[in-house]
Design a protein around this nucleic acid. Structure first.
Lengths: 199, 199
DNA sequence: AAATAATCTTAAACAAGTTTAAGAATCAGG
DNA sequence: CCTGATTCTTAAACTTGTTTAAGATTATTT
């Protein structure tokens, strides 16, 4: 099995940030994750579907969002290379999702089915651990975001976002950033103007 | 070892929601968690400290909060019986916390040190799994909160909070709820009035 | 390269939420 | 059960962010 230069090499490298994988574990990764290309605006999850996969982003960019009764969209998260995305709630409870996961760029992903991930959890201690760590890191990020949402003005949330996620931020249209920060694109425009040419 | 009626029995019961514990695992739980009583307004974590413990709440109620430059407090989370609380970021990175964790009621807790939890992770697969599940559930809650923060008015956030966490909500002063929802107590008062006697 | 779609900006009128201040009600602790 | 401290309410003036609408700019697709 030659996994060099393949998307699965990126995934193995990701896991090995935490702990080296033995040969059996590498084989399982190669066997149980499925590669897939997604074009811009393609969906890997839509409202009403059960999230069947946990997705590792090899290249490209995704957003998860919800749509309210009035048709407005709200971005819950972005994921670029080396990040993970799914609707965790739907994935683990195997119930219909309220969310969409859409590619913002042409992307390459590796997906694992719920049952295969459970298999890995049960047979290889290390994957319980790896996914514990993945979710812990995401939890910490999310808590930081909640903190900002309840304590920081839109202007500062925008500045902080740009400094914290510069790679991500400069790839995203402002309209997507506004939706993530919980403000309108019009107000973001105002904020940006103010930052460039402060009163 | 008789653990009936003891706080540690509550903790074992908590873990056994997910998977039964064998005798060795129960012994480790009894041995590695330390019981502690905390009086109202007592702190188990303060800004500048490293969070040395992961805390299971046997009885009582805690809040985690931050204080900004102007001295205002913002509640990041509450934890009542059968919930867990710490500053995850500080706990895992072993760096100083920006947050406080304070008892809102006289409380009884069980705490495990970072090194002891790592010991459990390493020697007992089940604890990696249990803590993966604990954090996943907390992540899902937090994502739901972010969604509300960016898409729902203060009035509806309050209503949703009251229906979603009634047990918790009716134990908390409104001032604490306001701080969690990201609004002022004065505005919450307005909102409550409107809900009782709609215009 | 043209056509279409999506994004960005501006501004005026509006709505949601904050600030300040002060009095009333409730609660915790000795 | 008394007392000080905390919490809750109200209201007026203010600030932050939204809505609507329209034109300008930039990307994407054909």
């Amino acid at each position: 099995m030659n996994t060099q230069n393949l998307p699965v090499a990126a995934l193995i490298k990701f896991f090995e940030q935490y702990f080296p994988l033995n040969m059996a574990e590498r084989k399982e990764v190669a066997a149980r994750f499925t590669e897939r290309s997604v074009k811009r605006r393609g969906f890997i999850l839509q409202q009403g579907d059960v999230a069947k996969y946990f997705t590792f982003v090899v290249s490209g960019c995704f957003r998860q969002y919800v749509i309210d009764e009035t048709g407005k969209e709200y971005n819950l998260q972005f994921a670029i290379e080396n990040d993970w995305i799914t609707d965790l709630c739907s994935f683990y409870s195997e119930t219909a999702s309220n969310t969409y996961v859409e590619a913002l760029e042409p992307s390459v992903i590796l997906q694992i089915k719920h049952e295969d991930l459970l298999y890995l959890y049960t047979h290889y201690h290390k994957f319980d651990r790896n996914f514990r760590i993945i979710v812990e890191k995401k939890y910490i990020d999310l808590q930081n975001r909640v903190m900002q949402n309840i304590s920081v003005t839109a202007e500062n949330r925008y500045s902080n976002f740009m400094t914290r996620y510069p790679n991500l931020a400069y790839r995203l249209p402002n309209i997507q950033i506004a939706s993530y920060l919980g403000i309108t694109p019009e107000f973001l425009s105002k904020v940006r103007k103010k930052i460039v040419r402060p009163a």
